[in-house]
Simulated assay, not measured.
Amino acid sequence: MAYEAALAGGVGLAREAGLGWEAVAWRLPGPTTDSRLREGEEVTRYCSEVLTSQHGYLSNPGYPHYYPGDLNCSWHIRVDEGQRLRIRVHDLSVRGVRQGTAGCTDFLRVAEGRRLLSLDCGDLERPLVLTSRGPEVTVTLWGEGQPLYPHRGTLVQYTAVGCPSPSPPRDGYSVHRNATHAHFSCCVNFVFADTLKKDRLLRCVDGHGWNDSLPRQCIDVRILMEFANATVRRILEQNLVTPRPEVRPVLQRGGSMFVDTILPSIIMVVLILGNCVIVAIIMKYRKRDRPTPPSRELVDLSEPDPDSV
C-alpha cells in the first residue's frame, strides 16, 4: 500500500511538472541490477526489438521499478545458423495467479517457434536457465489491466552457444553450416591463396572457435597461372583447377567412326526408303485415276455389219 501511495503521489507531482510515467517510476525506490550485469554491458529496454548479437541483456521499460500492465512486450533473438541460445532469466516479478482465475494473467513466456520453453508468473526465487535447439528464440512479457504495476518486471540474459559463423570471403560464399562444421567455397576461377584449393571445411572446436582460419578473399586462378612460379602452377594443375575460357569454345569434329560414317549412312538409307514409299503410293493412286478404255463388244454393236444389210 505504501508503494501504491508513493506511486499515486508521484503521478500527481509529475502531472504538475508535465512529466510522464517513465519519469515518475524512476523516482521510486527499487532493487539495483548492477550485481546482475557485467561491467560495461548495455540492456535493451525497448520492446519489439530484433536482437542479433552473440550476447546481451534485455528488460522491460521501467525495470526494476515497474512494468507496463497493458503492453505486449516481446523480443526476437536470432544468432548464426548452427548455433543455439542459452536464456538466463535473472529476475522476474509480475502479478501471480489471482483469486478466481485459472492461470496467469501477466507472465513471461520464452518460446522457440511453436515449442514452449517456459511460461512463468509471480516472483522468481532463483535464476532460470533455458537452452534452445536452434538459433532463434522469442521472449514475451505479457501484461493485462492497468497501465503500470508496482513490480519489477523481468531481466533476461541471452548468450549464443556454439561457434559464430565467419564472414564469407570476397569472391567466395558459404556452402553449408551446422553446429559442428562450416563449408566455404570460392567462385569459379578462384581459389584460397594459402592452400590453392577451391573449398575449405572448418570444424568447430569445443563450441568456441574454429580449427582453421578463413582468408578474407579468394584469388583469381588466371592471375596465378600467368604470374606465379612453376611450383604454384603445378599444384593448381594437380588440384584440377582449370580456368574457364573467356570465349565460348569452338566445337570440333571428333574421330568417331559412328559419327563420321555409320550415322550418315543410316540417315541416307532412311531417306531413300522414305522416297521409295512415297513414289509407290503416288503411282498406286495414279493407276486408280486412269480412265478405262471401252470394250470391243460395245464397238461392234454400235457399228452395223455391211454383209448383214
Rank of each mutant, 00 (worst) to 15 (best):
Y3T: 15
Y3L: 15
A6P: 00
A6Q: 15
G9D: 15
V11L: 05
G12M: 07
A17R: 11
G20R: 09
G20Q: 08
E22Q: 08
A25S: 07
W26H: 09
W26K: 12
R27K: 06
G30H: 06
T32Y: 11
T33S: 14
S35M: 03
E41Y: 08
V43D: 10
S48K: 05
E49P: 00
L51D: 07
H55G: 05
H55D: 13
G56F: 02
P61E: 15
G62N: 10
D70S: 13
W75T: 06
H76T: 11
I77P: 00
V79E: 00
E81L: 07
L85A: 03
I87V: 14
L92D: 10
L92I: 06
S93E: 15
V94N: 05
G100K: 11
F107I: 00
L108P: 02
V110N: 10
A111S: 13
R115G: 01
R115S: 12
L117S: 04
L119G: 00
D120V: 01
C121E: 10
R126Q: 10
L128R: 13
L130I: 04
R133Q: 06
E136I: 06
E136Y: 13
T138I: 05
P150Q: 09
P150G: 10
G153W: 02
L155C: 01
V156R: 07
G162P: 02
S167N: 10
D171W: 00
Y173M: 09
V175F: 15
T180D: 12
F184I: 03
V188W: 01
V191Q: 14
F192D: 02
A193F: 05
T195S: 13
D199K: 01
D199C: 00
D199R: 03
R203A: 03
C204R: 11
D206M: 13
H208E: 10
W210G: 02
D212W: 10
L214Q: 08
P215S: 13
F227K: 11
T231C: 04
V232Y: 12
R233F: 02
I235T: 08
E237Y: 10
Q238G: 09
Q238H: 15
V241H: 05
V247A: 07
R248W: 01
R248F: 01
V250I: 08
L251Y: 02
S256K: 05
F258S: 04
I266M: 09
I266V: 08
V269W: 01
I272T: 09
C276H: 06
I278G: 04
A280F: 11
K284W: 04
R290A: 11
P293I: 15
S295R: 13
R296W: 06
R296C: 11
E297C: 03
D307Q: 10
